[in-house]
Amino acid sequence: MKIKQKLKEYILEKEQKFIKHYFCCYCNRFISLINTHLEHFLPRDFFKNQQFSYSNIFVSCNDKKTCGHFKENKETSILNPSKDIFADYLEYKISDNGIEIVSKNNLGLKYKKICEDTIKILNLNERRLVNYRMNLYIQHVRKKVPFDYAEIHPILMNFLKKLQE
């Protein structure tokens, strides 16, 4: 087995697993071992000394229009999955487009900018992501289909549960 594959398995098992499923480090979508890639938070082109640092490597979905692939090799100032708890800075909001990710209102200017950059650079409100979240809302809140707790990230699950109340 390749080293990259083993590393991916290890990171998913130890860092990105909730209940029994794996989730993308950025968009929180359910992912599998097969359709993912190793994501260097600090780009290898700019931070060669961090290339093999465990705290710099995550597993991201393989979507070319969002997350790690969309971020590419850009040096950016965004929320770091190993240091920042996304739920402390970002939240879900129902809009005319669907369910979007927005920065929380109670943040200072510095973190407001970092959150806005995170959403933009990772394209977290890409149409398919917004629709995915809205479909979960329709399915589980409006139609009252029971949740499969294992396949929905806990942060999104909490948001949907609050809407049920």
Rank of each mutant, 00 (worst) to 15 (best):
M1S: 14
K2M: 05
I3S: 11
K6E: 13
K8L: 06
Y10D: 12
I11V: 05
E13T: 10
E13W: 07
E13C: 05
E13I: 08
E15T: 14
F18Q: 15
I19G: 13
C24P: 10
C24R: 01
C25T: 01
Y26V: 05
C27F: 02
F30Y: 15
F30S: 12
I31T: 07
I34W: 06
N35P: 06
T36F: 04
T36P: 10
E39K: 02
H40G: 02
F41R: 09
P43Y: 03
F46P: 07
K48F: 00
Q50V: 06
S55A: 09
N56E: 00
F58C: 10
S60W: 02
N62I: 03
N62R: 08
K64A: 11
K65T: 12
H69V: 04
F70W: 06
E72S: 12
E75I: 11
T76H: 09
I78Y: 02
I78T: 03
I78L: 03
L79P: 01
P81H: 02
K83H: 07
I85G: 03
F86E: 08
A87S: 15
D88K: 01
D88M: 02
Y89C: 00
E91W: 00
Y92A: 11
Y92P: 07
K93Q: 13
S95W: 04
S95G: 11
I101S: 01
I101H: 03
V102Q: 05
N105L: 09
N106F: 02
L107E: 04
L109A: 06
Y111Q: 05
K113R: 12
I114V: 09
E116K: 14
E116M: 09
I119C: 07
I119E: 03
R128Q: 12
L129W: 01
R133C: 06
M134N: 15
M134W: 12
M134I: 15
L136I: 03
Y137I: 08
H140Y: 08
V141Q: 05
R142D: 11
Y149R: 07
Y149E: 14
Y149I: 09
E151G: 14
E151I: 15
I152G: 15
H153I: 08
H153A: 10
P154C: 06
N158W: 00
F159G: 14
Q164K: 09
Q164W: 00
E165D: 13
E165K: 15
